[in-house]
Write a protein that binds this DNA or RNA. Structure first.
Lengths: 128, 128
DNA sequence: CTAGACCTTGACGCCGATGTCAACGCCAGG
DNA sequence: CCTGGCGTTGACATCGGCGTCAAGGTCTAG
């Protein structure tokens, strides 16, 4: 299938697909006329990339998943490298949530203060 | 005081301070030689900006706080506009945390799956 | 006088994942 | 043949918050 069709099936733009290719994530055979020609595996790869990106992964982080699919596995997360990325991501999320909670708590505090001293008092925050 | 001193006191760079000025957040009187000359209020404003940025606010979002200080208030969050930003931010944080939790849960699921079917099975995610 | 530490404005670089436009080739239908 | 809808590569634009370099002016100490 050609790039337009793939884009539609995957739910993204042709520009994005070409970008993935430029980053070495999506290979492409060429038809006689020079058009990119994708097969079912490419479709699965593209979908894997999109779903990971949608979740919040960086393009780079999808690489192990792509490699895993290309290696013949039925799922992109069937390989240890990919699983490792899952774990890293979970840690990142935990850290992020922790910081957000801290900030949230801080903001609540500020809200309280702002209410009480309806006009004055000069606090000061900080983090990071 | 001059920009270098202010930067040091606030804990940021002169570049950043000039940037805030370019965005209309930090006014500046000029000495005879053309150097920027800051007073105590500017110091407080700059600190307010920095602390909000450190917490995760966008520069634009600090505007109400700056205006509040400039209006003569002892605290940047003494005005309703600023407080509103606090509230918005808290909501944003809640949304963010919620999504992160969802993703986290999803990732845990994938991890389980990946363990069980040590090699095959093709799932598919999605969000956003 | 000169070095050097400060200041000035202006402008380009960065990061990530595309959007968008340009200028062109390929191919099918009327 | 021509139009229009696909494809191609290339390259610049976007967003935020600066970093960093360039090319100069200012002021102070030695």
């Amino acid at each position: 299938m050609r790039i337009g069709e793939l884009a539609e099936k995957v739910g993204t733009s042709t520009r994005a697909l070409r970008y993935y290719e430029s980053q070495g994530l999506l290979g492409a055979r060429r038809s006689a006329n020079g058009y990119r020609d994708y097969d079912e595996l490419d479709l699965r790869v593209a979908r894997e990339i999109r779903s990971l990106l949608d979740i919040g992964f960086a393009l780079e982080e999808t690489r192990p998943f792509v490699a895993c699919l290309r290696a013949g596995n039925a799922a992109g997360d069937a390989c240890p490298d990919a699983v490792a990325v899952y774990r890293r991501k979970i840690e990142e999320i935990d850290d992020c949530v922790e910081r957000l909670h801290a900030v949230r708590a801080h903001l609540e505090t500020q809200l309280e203060r702002a209410k009480k001293h309806k006009e004055k008092t000069c606090p000061r925050l900080r983090r990071n």
